[in-house]
Design a binder for these strands. Structure first.
Lengths: 330, 330
DNA sequence: CATCCGAATTGGATCGTTCAAGATGGCGAG
DNA sequence: CTCGCCATCTTGAACGATCCAATTCGGATG
C-alpha cells in the first residue's frame, strides 16, 4: 500500500506551502498561473484527493445530501423512488455531492434521524419526497435553518419552502383531452379520497378539462384508497351506471390496473389511463401519465446546491410537466 | 442555535477529562461505574453526539458503506434493487453504519469511483450487486484489501471473497416440482443464453429436477435475452412443437410475462412461473419465485460489519433459499 | 515505613484541512 | 529614496475526536 498522500505531500512535491495547494483547489484565481500549473501537476502525479473528513472538520460542510428510502409499499408504485434516487445520485455527483440514505417509519422518528444526521455527520441538506398538509418535518427543518428541498409541493403555502413537483393536474388534463379527442364525452375518474394534495390535484385536472369541454363531471367519479382490487370495484360501479362512462382516467397505475379488468369485460372495451408510468404499465401496455423523475431529481439537486453554494440566491420552485405515454389501453 | 456540544463540553459538565468521556463511549469497561454513569448523564443532558468527521480523521474509519444504484433497466426487474437498498439501509443503521450511494456506467468507471470514495471519504466497505465471471471490480478491491461483500456469488471461485446469494437453482427446482406435483411432465424452460452465472444456475434447477423425475429435458428449453417480447416468442416456439410442454418455468418475470400471452392462448391454458416476484408479478397474478431480499441485505451488512468490527473473524458465505409465491398462473 | 502494583484518570500530541494574519517582493507615486 | 499597495505566498492555530504516555491514588506487600 502506497504512503498516504496529503496536502503536505503535494506541497513538498511542488515546492510550495500547504496553503498554496489549498488555494489552488479552493481559490485558483489568487494563485499565479505558473505556480497553479506546477501544483496541479503534482496533484495529478501523486493522485492526491482532499480528505473530506479533515475538510469537513474545518469548514463544517460535508458535501453530503440525505434522502429517505422508503419500504416498497404495495409494490406497484414503488419503483418510482428507484428512478428518482438514481437521478438524484447522478446529478449530485456532478455537483460534487454524495447521497446518503436513511430510513424512518414515521415523521417523529424521521425528525430524530435528522437530529442524528446533522449532529454526527454534519449533513449539508435534505431531499424529502412526498409532503402532506402540515408536514412536521419541513417545519422542524425550516425552524433550524437546515437547507432542504421537497419533491412535492407544500400544499398549505406554496412559498413555505423550496420545492420541485410535477404538475399532476396537467397530466390528468392531458389524459382527459386525449380521450375527448378520441370522441369520448362521458369520461370517468377513479381517484383517492379528498384531502391529499396529490390526489386532489390530479382529480382537478380531470374535472376542469371536462368542464371546459362542456361536460358535467357530476357522478362520474369514485374515491377509494389505492389498490388494484379497489380500482376494479370502482370501475364496476361506474360501468354499472344507467349511463356509464365510456372511458376512465385513474389517479394511479394500481387503480388503473384494477379498472382494466372491469373495462376489458365491457363491450366495447372501455379505454383506461393510469398515472405514474410504472414498469407494470409498460409491461401490460397500459397508457399512463409519465412523470419526468430524472429531471425532477436533477432540479432538486440544483435547488439544494444553489442554496448551499450561493447563499444569496433565493431559488424559485419548479413545476415540471408530465407527458402521456400512449399504449394499448387508450 | 445552541452552542455546539463537543466532547470537551461534556467533560466539563461531568467534571472529568476529555479522554474519560471518550472511554465511556468507546471502552466503557475501563471506567469506574460511578464515573461512567455521571458522564452518561451529561451526554444525555447536553444532547452530545460524537462528530464523525473528527473521529474519522483520528481512526481512519468513516462508518460509511457504499452501494451502487443502477439505472432501472427494462423497468420490470428494477424494483428488486429498491427493496434490497431499503433492507441494507435499515440493517446498516442498527449496526451503526450509514449507506452512501454512487453511480457508474461501466466497471472501469466504477473502479474510478472506488478510488474516489476511498480517497476522499475513507469508506469502510462496499456492497456490490450482481457479479460476472472474472469481475474486475472484485479483483481491484481484493488487491487493495478493501472490505466488501457481494450480493451474488463469485462464479469462478466460491472462496474468492465474501458473498451472499439466493439459491436460484433451488428456486427453479421448487417451481418445477410444484408443476410436477400438479401432474405435468413436459415442463419447458425459457431462460438466458449460457454463460451468465445467474442464468445457468436457475436453468440447472429446472433441468436437474426434471432428470430426477425421469423426464428428459432435451429440446424443452429456449435461450434469449431478457424481455417481454422475447419471452412471448420463445413460448410460441415451444408451444408449436410436435409434443409441446404443458407448463413453463422462466428465468425472469419479464420472460414469464411474455410467455403468459402465448400460454393463455393455448387450450387448455399453459401454467407459467416467473422469477423475482416483482410488483408486476404480484399485480397480474403471476406465480413467481421470490427472493428474500430483506434477509439478503441484512446478511450483507452482517458480513461486512463482521469484517470491519472483528478483524479475526473469517465470515462464511451465505446462501439463502427463495420461496415460491403461488398465484393464478400456476 | 518505603515500595510497588494495577486500576482509573489526565494532558499533550496528532489526524489533514482551512482560516487568519503575517511575510516577501515588485512597482508606481510622492 | 521612501512609502504604500497589490499580488503572491507562508506560517501558526484551530476544528473535535482518539492514541499514547504519564500521573494519581488507594491498598497490598516486603
Amino acid at each position: 500500500m502506497a504512503e498516504k498522500v496529503t496536502i503536505a505531500t503535494v506541497a513538498r512535491h511542488a515546492q510550495v506551502s500547504r496553503q498554496t495547494v489549498s488555494n489552488v483547489i479552493n481559490a485558483p484565481h489568487i494563485v499565479r498561473e505558473e505556480t497553479r500549473q506546477r501544483v496541479q501537476d503534482a496533484i495529478v502525479a501523486l493522485g492526491y484527493r482532499a480528505n473530506q473528513a479533515a475538510r469537513q472538520m474545518r469548514t463544517g460542510r460535508s458535501r453530503l445530501i440525505a434522502v429517505r428510502i422508503e419500504p416498497t409499499r404495495d409494490g406497484i408504485n414503488g419503483s418510482v423512488l428507484d428512478r428518482f434516487l438514481h437521478g438524484l445520485t447522478v446529478t449530485a455527483e456532478t455537483a460534487g455531492y454524495r447521497t446518503l440514505l436513511y430510513t424512518a417509519t414515521d415523521a417523529e422518528r424521521e425528525i430524530t434521524s435528522y437530529d442524528d444526521l446533522l449532529g454526527s455527520y454534519d449533513l449539508d441538506g435534505f431531499v424529502l419526497t412526498g409532503t402532506d398538509h402540515g408536514d412536521p418535518r419541513t417545519a422542524w427543518l425550516a425552524e433550524r435553518g437546515v437547507p432542504f428541498v421537497t419533491f412535492g409541493r407544500p400544499w398549505d403555502d406554496l412559498d413555505a419552502h423550496c420545492w420541485v413537483d410535477v404538475d399532476g393536474a396537467a397530466g390528468t388534463a392531458q389524459a382527459t383531452r386525449h380521450l375527448l379527442a378520441a370522441g369520448h364525452r362521458r369520461i370517468g375518474w377513479i381517484g383517492w379520497p379528498a384531502g391529499s394534495g396529490v390526489g386532489d390535484d390530479r382529480r382537478a385536472g380531470w374535472r376542469e378539462t371536462l368542464r371546459e369541454a362542456a361536460v358535467d363531471p357530476t357522478g362520474l367519479d369514485r374515491e377509494t384508497v389505492d389498490g388494484i382490487a379497489e380500482g376494479e370495484r370502482c370501475a364496476h360501479e361506474l360501468l354499472a351506471l344507467p349511463t356509464p362512462p365510456t372511458a376512465l382516467v385513474c389517479a394511479s397505475d394500481s387503480l388503473a390496473l384494477g379498472a382494466l379488468q372491469a373495462a376489458r369485460a365491457a363491450d366495447p372495451p372501455v379505454p383506461v389511463i393510469g398515472f405514474d408510468d410504472t414498469p407494470v404499465a409498460a409491461a401490460i401496455g397500459l397508457t399512463s401519465v409519465s412523470q419526468p423523475l430524472g429531471d425532477a431529481a436533477a432540479r432538486c439537486v440544483d435547488l439544494l446546491t444553489a442554496v448551499l453554494d450561493g447563499p444569496r440566491h433565493t431559488p424559485v420552485p419548479v413545476l415540471l410537466q408530465p407527458s402521456l405515454v400512449r399504449r394499448h389501453t387508450a
